[in-house]
């Protein structure tokens, strides 16, 4: 049984969405095995449901939302550092150290 903090939107998805914040060091139960989260993950962020190879599509809502730019291990954070849009590139800011992330 997967962790209750994980939401699988569509059976075709290869990512889970987090229903709540997961703190650094906590463990999460995936379908196959348990993974330890190295850094805090916010509500609404995604982790890999299983291993995703570089160049493979990321699937959420049962539809492609971009492609992996590196190999992604099961349970890893899936975000702008390892996914690119297949349409237009994503613009993101690096947070300043004095701002606590929401």
């Amino acid at each position: 049984m997967t962790d209750k903090r994980l939401l699988l939107i569509s059976p075709a998805d290869n990512v889970f969405v987090l229903r709540g914040v997961v703190e650094a060091g906590e463990t999460i139960a995936l379908e196959q095995g348990v993974t330890r989260v190295p850094a805090r993950l916010g509500l609404g962020h995604k982790i890999a449901r299983h291993a995703i190879g570089r160049g493979q599509e990321i699937v959420k809502y049962g539809a492609p939302i971009g492609s992996a730019t590196s190999d992604i291990a099961a349970g890893s954070h899936v975000h702008v550092h390892n996914v690119k849009s297949d349409y237009t590139p994503t613009f993101a800011l690096t947070a300043s150290s004095e701002e606590v992330p929401l």
Binding site: V17, L18, G42, L43, G44, H45, K46, I58, K60, Y61, A63, P64, I65, G66, V78, H79, V80, V83, K84, S85, D86, Y87, T88, P89, T90, F91, A92, L93, A95, P101, L102
Partner: peptide, 22 residues
């Protein structure tokens, strides 16, 4: 050169314009 995608979208867990779109 930019999608309709702001920096805060990424902080909130959205990764690409197509994910935001869906």
């Amino acid at each position: 050169g930019f999608g309709s995608f702001a920096a805060g979208n990424a902080e909130g867990g959205l990764t690409t314009i197509e994910e935001k779109s869906l």
